[in-house]
């Protein structure tokens, strides 16, 4: 079991670090997708099927494609010679270390570190029940937000015949 976890963790970390280090932006996105898949497999390993499949559906199926489209529409996809380290690398390192320190501190001082022996198997039904009953209001707010975003997108995409006369 531990071997599977380490393989999956290595896969995720490899994907994430390749996304950071590769020079070609499309390669970066593809490597990031590998990281997403690794994460989804980790969820699956933990028994969270619904979250895992949603992760693949949303991140691999939608976010990666969106990123790829965004890159292709904004700049040419050819390799761009760039220095391996950006000029902000010191700031970046400090930020990353600080984030890591905070997260590590939080994890170490939390009391969930000991795994509960019998984990309750969360079924898709329970997730649906929770979303529809106890988390109905956040769900509705999310829906409203997404509708607003959708309307905004439609307005941006509409032909501007009236204003340009």
């Amino acid at each position: 079991m531990h071997a599977i976890f380490f393989i999956l963790a290595a896969l995720t970390i490899t994907g994430a670090s390749a996304a950071m280090c590769l020079r070609n932006l499309i390669h970066c996105v593809l490597a990031l997708t590998l990281g997403f898949v690794g994460l989804a497999l980790l969820y699956l390993f933990l028994g969270a099927q619904f979250v895992s499949f949603t992760q693949i559906l949303v991140y691999v199926g939608a976010v990666a494609i969106l990123a790829v489209f965004a890159i292709m529409m904004t700049r040419s996809a050819g390799p761009h010679p760039q220095p391996a380290l950006s000029s902000f690398w010191i700031t970046g390192c400090i930020t990353a270390l600080a984030t890591f320190a905070v997260l590590a501190w939080a994890i170490i001082h939390s009391n969930i570190i000991t795994p509960t022996p019998a984990q309750p198997a969360v079924s898709t039904n329970q997730i649906g029940d929770a979303l529809m009953h106890s988390f109905a209001l956040p769900l509705e707010i999310m829906g409203l937000l997404l509708t607003a975003a959708l309307i905004g997108a439609v307005i941006i995409a509409m032909p501007q015949n009236r204003s340009s006369k």
């Binding site: 997708t33 099927q49 619904f50 499949f53 559906l57 199926g61 790829v68 292709m72 079924s123 898709t124």
Partner: peptide
């Protein structure tokens, strides 16, 4: 027999898009 089988099917189906994009690009 996955409890989220239909979702699995669509999640896998969305990977096809990535393959198609990789091939084209």
């Amino acid at each position: 027999n996955l409890s989220a089988g239909v979702l699995f099917f669509f999640a896998i189906g969305s990977m096809v898009e990535l393959a198609v994009f990789m091939a084209g690009w």
